[in-house]
Deep mutational scan, measured.
Amino acid sequence: HNLTITQGKLFFHYNPKLCLSEIHKMEEVSGTKGRQERNDIALKTNGDQASCENELLKFSYIRTSFDKILLRWEPYWPPDFRDLLGFMLFYKEAPYQNVTEFDGQDACGSNSWTVVDIDPPLRSNDPKSQNHPGWLMRGLKPWTQYAIFVKTLVTFSDERRTYGAKSDIIYVQTDATNPSVPLDPISVSNSSSQIILKWKPPSDPNGNITHYLVFWERQAEDSELFELDYCLKGLKLPSRTWSPPFESEDSQKHNQSEYEDSAGECCSCPKTDSQILKELEESSFRKTFEDYLHNVVFVPRKTSSGTGAEDPRPSRKRRSLGDVGNVTVAVPTVAAFPNTSSTSVPTSPEEHRPFEKVVNKESLVISGLRHFTGYRIELQACNQDTPEERCSVAAYVSARTMPEAKADDIVGPVTHEIFENNVVHLMWQEPKEPNGLIVLYEVSYRRYGDEELHLCVSRKHFALERGCRLRGLSPGNYSVRIRATSLAGNGSWTEPTYFYVTDYLDVPSNIA
């Protein structure tokens, strides 16, 4: 807008934040220059609390790290170098490059900038070799853009010569660093050979998330399962459950009422301010606690030095998902009996873990797994792929695949051998790939016309006998059925096997 004052003059007093240069501009645009008398524009009460600059400061050096910015700028000295009290560095987070010096300023003089007072450097006698002032900004957020400017702080001049310097606002972004852990990993099994893994992005990506790394490792069953005799009275049979499938998407929606109208769909109840505040506090606490764990609990591995020492970490090797089922080394339970199943799973520490690289999504279907087997899954978020990966501390989750139908069934015939004193040795093959492992066998036998009897055969007993022995049988026709019990439950009964026990007292003698 054009402003013209045809008559009258300007009068400025007691404006401590208004620089004289701005008042002189007002004289020019209003056409009143030359009308004012000496005392109409006070030299001592206008701009006496402001830094009124008329020179431009330029930054000469900028260096960044993930949490620091090192700045240096060209030296500046007023005509009387004693008038320079120091520099004021202003900075704040700036997602967009549209910041002005006066953003967030209120009537009390406060604003949204963080201000650092910096002492002037030592003055050199040689004007050509003056030290460049600077400042190291610490405690910054990774991968965050900051708006920065600097200006001088000078003393009051009796001659009211307006001098000083100020830089333009520059924008500097800190470097990326390792992201925080992925949030809320959930693993479920939808079949006997697959596990579905879902997660949420890290709360602090500290860069642009480029991919996720998912490692999985087959877990050995508890050692007590191999040692305890679950045929003993009072000892509860062990059981394991597989990871249940995901709930429906509708039930997972946030901010939804727990109660549904019987007449149909209901609208979600909005969260109160107290609920939102509580969630923010919980989120802040979780982030602080995660940072504490990362800094205190997890110790970084030592990389190899120039002395030739090897990095103890196993090298990563990509495998196809079809090879995942046989990740671990199978060892027989008892070496003397080769027909026992290889369900003991000690994992070799030198073995390469299978892994998958996930790009542009937060889910993965891990296939080719062994049925009813526990897996430990390790999830890392990465925001750099080359020249070397920059990934987060791992988040861990466990899951067990679903049982395989008929995996616990005894394959092959049940054979028998009759000894003296009416002892019958029953023999059968253990299931080759049971659900988890076989903890015991149930032997059901009966003599024709009598009630059915049951015998429990422990895992250890089966390994020693290759089956079991029935003792003290009365003469007669017998039928026997056997079924295995694994961590997933009972298998199917075998087809009945028949044998006849004679009275050993009636056996004919070869003595003449």
Rank of each mutant, 00 (worst) to 15 (best):
G467T: 04
H294L: 15
C267P: 05
V365T: 06
D250H: 09
Y375T: 02
E388W: 09
V334Y: 11
S444D: 14
L225Q: 12
E378P: 01
I366P: 00
W216A: 06
P338L: 09
E279I: 10
T497M: 03
Y498V: 07
Y396A: 06
G368S: 11
F246C: 08
P314L: 02
V359L: 09
E362N: 06
P300V: 10
Q219H: 13
V324Q: 08
H461K: 09
G322M: 13
Q256N: 06
Q429S: 15
E495N: 12
E227F: 13
P238W: 12
T485N: 03
V393T: 03
Y504K: 10
E430T: 11
V365I: 15
C269K: 04
I366H: 02
L379C: 05
P270D: 15
S509Q: 15
F462V: 10
H371I: 14
E389T: 10
W216V: 10
E282D: 05
I377V: 11
S392V: 01
K236R: 08
E351Q: 04
C468F: 07
K287Y: 12
D273T: 05
N295Y: 02
V423L: 04
V297E: 05
L455I: 10
N435F: 00
T497E: 09
S239G: 13
C231L: 01
V297T: 08
L440N: 15
H254I: 14
E356L: 06
N339R: 10
D204T: 02
A263I: 14
A394C: 06
Y292G: 03
R390P: 12
T494R: 02
V414H: 02
N255K: 04
S398V: 14
R481W: 04
L280F: 14
G234Q: 07
V501P: 01
S509P: 13
L280S: 03
E465D: 11
F246D: 07
V507T: 12
V507Q: 15
Y498K: 15
P270L: 06
P434C: 08
H211Q: 04
N255L: 04
N421P: 12
S444N: 00
V443N: 00
S284A: 14
K357L: 13
R446S: 00
R481P: 00
S509W: 14
T347Y: 12
V424A: 03
A395I: 12
P300C: 15
G476Y: 00
S398Y: 04
T307Q: 06
S274I: 02
E258F: 15
G449L: 09
D222T: 08
E279F: 03
E404Y: 14
L235Q: 12
T307P: 09
V299A: 15
E282L: 14
D222K: 06
D222E: 03
S479H: 06
S367K: 11
E389G: 04
A263T: 09
V324Y: 04
R353M: 14
S492I: 13
L228R: 06
F298Q: 13
S257P: 08
R376M: 08
V423P: 02
A407M: 03
E224M: 15
T340L: 09
C231R: 01
D409K: 09
Y212S: 08
S474L: 12
D261V: 15
A463Q: 08
R313V: 12
D506K: 12
R471L: 05
L232Y: 11
I438V: 09
Q219S: 08
C391L: 02
C267Q: 05
T401H: 00
T241D: 13
V443F: 01
N255Q: 04
R316W: 13
S262M: 09
V324C: 01
K271G: 06
L440H: 12
S320N: 06
S243L: 10
T485G: 02
P354E: 07
E281K: 09
T333A: 13
H371T: 11
L464N: 09
I438R: 01
L228D: 15
D503G: 03
S341C: 08
G491W: 00
N339D: 12
R481S: 07
V327I: 06
R400G: 05
H461W: 14
F289G: 09
V480Y: 04
G207K: 02
C267W: 01
V423K: 05
T210A: 03
V334M: 07
S363L: 10
L379T: 03
E442Y: 04
V299L: 03
R318P: 12
T494K: 04
E249A: 13
P300G: 09
Y500M: 06
Y375F: 14
K361S: 11
E351V: 14
S320P: 03
G467R: 11
C266Y: 06
Q219T: 02
L237E: 12
H254M: 08
T241V: 15
A399F: 08
Y212I: 15
L277H: 10
N510S: 07
K317R: 10
C267H: 15
C391A: 02
P300N: 06
S444P: 00
E351K: 14
P314V: 03
S367L: 12
V457Y: 14
D222C: 09
T415L: 14
G449E: 15
S315D: 14
Q380W: 08
L237M: 10
E495M: 01
S479P: 00
R376E: 10
S274Y: 14
K253P: 01
L364G: 13
A405S: 07
V439D: 05
H461G: 08
V414P: 06
S341W: 12
H211K: 05
F355R: 08
Y292P: 09
V299I: 04
D261P: 10
A263P: 14
V393M: 11
Q275E: 14
Y445R: 02
L237D: 05
E224R: 07
D261G: 04
R390C: 10
S474E: 11
T328Y: 13
G306S: 07
L235W: 14
V324L: 09
S305Y: 07
T343Q: 10
Y230M: 05
N339P: 11
R376I: 15
A335M: 14
L235D: 10
R469L: 07
V397H: 15
T343L: 13
L228K: 04
R301S: 14
Y396K: 13
T401L: 05
T415Y: 13
E420K: 09
F285Q: 05
L293S: 15
V359H: 06
I209M: 13
G472H: 08
E452C: 12
E388F: 15
A463I: 08
S479Y: 10
L426S: 03
G374C: 14
L379H: 01
S342L: 14
E404I: 09
I366K: 06
N339G: 09
D250A: 10
F499E: 00
E356N: 14
C456R: 02
D506A: 08
R240E: 07
P387G: 15
L235G: 06
P349Y: 14
N422L: 12
H416Y: 09
E224G: 04
L426A: 02
H352F: 14
N360L: 07
R353T: 04
P244M: 14
H454P: 09
A381Y: 02
S509T: 10
H352I: 04
D291E: 10
L437C: 10
D323P: 05
R466W: 10
V423Y: 10
G234N: 10
S320D: 08
E351Y: 13
D291L: 08
R301F: 04
S283A: 12
Y504T: 15
D250P: 11
M402F: 07
R370Q: 08
V324S: 08
K236F: 07
S283D: 11
K406F: 14
I276E: 06
S458N: 05
